[in-house]
């Protein structure tokens, strides 16, 4: 999966977790918390969605690395090696 495909998947997971979020308005460099009022419940749901669809089990201690779209991509690329 290249970077653009990965981004597209992540945006889809994100809107699945928070259907009230407008993907067109998403700013990749800004933390979800700051632009969408993301809370710990959203983060957990996002981690669950990533586990289910990408097979990546993100430990709780790495949640901070999922704070924005750009950070998610960087983290997953690192995990994929």
């Amino acid at each position: 999966m290249n970077r653009e495909e990965l981004k597209a998947v992540l945006v889809e997971l994100l809107t699945g977790v928070a259907p009230d979020v407008d993907p067109a308005a998403l700013l990749p460099g800004v933390d979800f918390r700051d632009q969408f009022d993301f809370d710990s419940m959203d983060t957990l749901n996002f981690a669950i969605a990533m586990h289910q669809s990408l097979g990546v089990n993100v430990p709780e201690t790495d949640y901070a690395k999922l704070a924005s779209l750009d950070k998610c991509v960087a983290y997953l690329e690192l995990r994929q090696g």
Binding site: A47, I48, H51, N57
Partner: peptide
């Protein structure tokens, strides 16, 4: 909570 959450997959974690 930290011990519990480290031992389970995301879907089993507690807040």
């Amino acid at each position: 909570l930290e011990r519990h959450n480290a031992s389970v997959e995301p879907a089993g974690r507690l807040l």
